[in-house]
Design a protein around this nucleic acid. Structure first.
Length: 381
DNA sequence: GTGTATGATTGCGG
DNA sequence: CCGCAATCATACAC
């Protein structure tokens, strides 16, 4: 339509107007004869201003509909001769438009304009980047990394992790000899998790770099037709990396979960009960029955007992807790045991005293003469 | 396989 | 945190 023509004419400079002047003398004359040239120029200027607010789509859309001659001539006479030129312009407009577009693309100022656009973009991008430049290392991902490292999943091959597990096993008070089977099982499972983790990580990294390359190539290609600064590409890459690292975090998280589950299972396995050895129960029972009136060993006593029995203090505590409650529940059942240990302690005491008075009575074989285990119902010692 | 013994765990109160 | 009581889960004896 001719609105567009006029605007483009205005945009392309005075040449257009001059051409109109020359090529359409008739119409110009008519306009002049109408005595409103000022108003027409004002119209044109207004339209030029207006076009800056238009979107490309709008402008293009305006290119095709039926022309409305009213604006141009300033005359409302449809039969006006001036329309001859106007009609020509209207029919030829699309072509004209294409032509001007091409002219713009090949314009000698285009590179300069392009570089100015690039500069402006770069400044904008920089100001945007300035705000979110240094994103601090995510504490969550750091925590996950630390844990995976500590568990020996992400660290150097073998070593640290299993050593830590062994240390944990030892510290937890499990019998050091019986944990080897479960331990190797644990190590095997951990290695499996480790392998899955690494292969997944590799996959992610590969996908990330592939995608990054793809996007970079795309942008580079596009940068020939539209202004894309290297900074912009850099930013895009950063965005991609951020996306992929969030996926990576999910992987790390689920790996951590798997390790935790394995660990808890491992700990559960270690909780498999093993009876204390005979000597240990003897030591504990001795203490218990000889302190029957107050079977609450002090912290020191517990430590002593723990050392003697090669168990932990908490195991001693457990034992005494169990023993007290079970004894109390059924004293009768423990009577025999009580007598047994009463005799035992008596014998020990006798032995000690005998050793002390060895000079006086050298031979005291059977610790004889001491309160016999007479109250043992079955007559056993 | 079943019943009992026993070490460990859990929930609660002080 | 400690001890008690109940309970779990396994070891062990039969």
């Amino acid at each position: 339509m001719d609105d567009q023509t006029r605007m483009l004419t205005g945009l392309t400079g005075l040449a257009g107007l001059a051409q109109a002047d020359v090529g359409d003398q008739d119409s110009v004359r008519k306009q002049q004869s109408l005595g409103q040239p000022q108003q027409d120029i004002g119209d044109i200027l207004q339209q030029i201003m207006a076009i800056t607010d238009e979107s490309l789509d709008e402008a293009q859309a305006r290119c095709w509909p039926e022309e409305s001659p009213a604006h141009w001539g300033g005359s409302d006479d449809p039969t006006e001769g001036g329309r001859a030129g106007g009609g020509m312009a209207g029919g030829g407009l699309p072509l004209n438009f294409q032509h001007r577009k091409h002219a713009l693309n090949c314009h000698r100022m285009k590179p300069a304009l392009f570089s100015v656009l690039c500069e402006i973009k770069e400044k904008t991008v920089l100001s945007i980047r300035g705000v979110q430049e240094e994103d601090p290392p995510d504490p969550q991902i750091m925590r996950l990394d630390n844990m995976l490292l500590a568990e020996g999943v992400s660290g150097p091959e073998k070593g640290g992790g299993s050593a830590a597990a062994a240390a944990a096993a030892a510290a937890a008070g499990g019998s050091p000899t019986d944990s080897s089977i479960e331990h190797s099982d644990y190590r095997a499972k951990l290695a499996q998790i480790r392998q899955i983790y690494h292969s997944e990580l590799e996959k992610y990294e590969q996908a990330c770099s592939e995608f990054t390359n793809h996007v970079m190539n795309l942008l580079r290609e596009q940068s020939r037709t539209r202004p894309i600064s290297p900074k912009e590409i850099e930013r895009m890459v950063a965005i991609i990396h951020r996306k992929f690292s969030s996926i990576q975090m999910q992987l790390k998280q689920s790996t951590c979960e798997a390790v935790m589950i394995l660990r808890s299972r491992f700990l559960d396995a270690r909780r498999k009960r093993r009876n204390f050895n005979k000597q240990a129960t003897e030591v504990l029972n001795e203490y218990f029955y000889s302190h029957l009136s107050n079977p609450y060993p002090s912290e020191e006593a517990k430590e002593e007992l723990a050392k003697k029995c090669a168990i932990t203090v908490s195991q001693v505590s457990n034992w005494f807790g169990n023993k007290r409650i079970r004894y109390k529940k059924n004293i009768g059942k423990f009577q025999e045991e009580a007598n047994l240990y009463a005799v035992k302690t008596a014998v020990d005491a006798a032995n000690v005293s005998a050793q002390a008075s060895q000079a006086n009575s050298p031979a005291t074989p059977n610790s004889g003469g001491y309160p016999a285990p007479c109250y043992t119902p079955d007559g056993r010692l």
